[in-house]
């Protein structure tokens, strides 16, 4: 018998690595999750940058679209589909009989999607720089958009599994939140900072757009809606939605397709 026993972290990495290997083996899944977002993100950068309006404003819009595209398609939808598929085939249940903790099973199952999303963001940064994008004037809101956006999309993915009985149905059940997040993140940056339309920032995903815009145009802590610092409603929205989705997922998440 072998005597080596792995640490909890190495167990999570082992399962996560297996998930990545499986993704790479499936050519269709690999193309749709690895290359499609890059193709779309590059497309945004090329086409939007050709218009009459240039400068930091247009790059804020481009970066916001890239972020929200990766977070919604690459993280939110992928996590929903992956978790439902693994639940359907009882792989989640099997993994719970290993030495992995429940949190470890979930991190390993969803971690690759998050890691791929981060790689996409790095590639967007390279593409945008090559096409002449300015460096953000304030990286703090951009970091908040990335961290908060990931948190909202990961937890939203788990919540959507509650109402998704099969992987096929995930294509339907993820649509409402996908469109809401995508549209809100697109609209909020083009609304005036002190306009009441800024209340849209309370919609999940919208702060990704707002915070990205502030990163490129500045004014993160300047007075905005209700005289509050401009970034604050967005940050609060991300925190509250993450908390709400986490609470819902903790209460209703199902490991087993039976019940």
């Amino acid at each position: 018998m072998t005597t080596a026993t792995a640490s909890p972290a190495s167990r999570v990495l082992a399962l996560g690595a297996a998930e990545v290997r499986l993704l790479l083996r499936n050519r269709t899944a690999a193309i749709s999750s690895l290359f499609l977002p890059i193709a779309f993100g590059g497309f945004f950068a090329f086409t939007f940058n050709q218009g009459a309006v240039g400068g930091p404003g247009i790059w804020a819009t481009i970066a916001a679209l890239q972020l929200v595209l990766t977070f919604t398609m690459g993280v939110y939808i992928t996590i929903t589909q992956t978790v439902v598929a693994r639940r359907q085939t009882r792989v989640l249940k099997r993994m719970r009989t290993s030495s992995l903790s429940d949190a470890g099973v979930l991190v390993a199952t969803t971690g690759p999607a998050v890691a791929i999303a981060v790689v996409h963001l790095a590639l967007y940064a390279v593409i945008n720089s090559l096409l002449g994008a300015p460096f953000p004037v304030d990286v703090v809101p951009l970091a908040l958009a990335v961290v908060g956006g990931l948190a909202v999309c990961v937890t939203a993915g788990f919540v959507t599994t509650i109402v998704t009985p099969s992987p096929e149905r995930a294509q339907i059940t993820t649509l409402p939140l996908f469109f809401v997040m995508f549209a809100a993140a697109f609209v909020v940056p083009v609304v005036a900072v002190d306009s009441w339309w800024q209340a849209l920032v309370l919609v999940p995903g919208a702060p990704i757009g707002l915070l990205t815009q502030l990163a490129f145009t500045g004014g993160t802590w300047a007075p905005g809606l209700l005289g509050l610092p401009a970034a604050l409603p967005g940050v609060l929205s991300l925190v509250v939605w993450t908390a709400v989705f986490t609470l819902l997922a903790q209460r209703r998440f199902r490991w087993d397709p039976r019940h």
Partner: peptide, 29 residues
Amino acid sequence: QLQEGGFVDELTVQETLQLWQRLVERPDR
């Protein structure tokens, strides 16, 4: 042992057991 399922279908038998080796605290081959 589950009543059914619980396998990653795309993995081979050997890969399944090798993965299990990394996931289970009890040593075996």
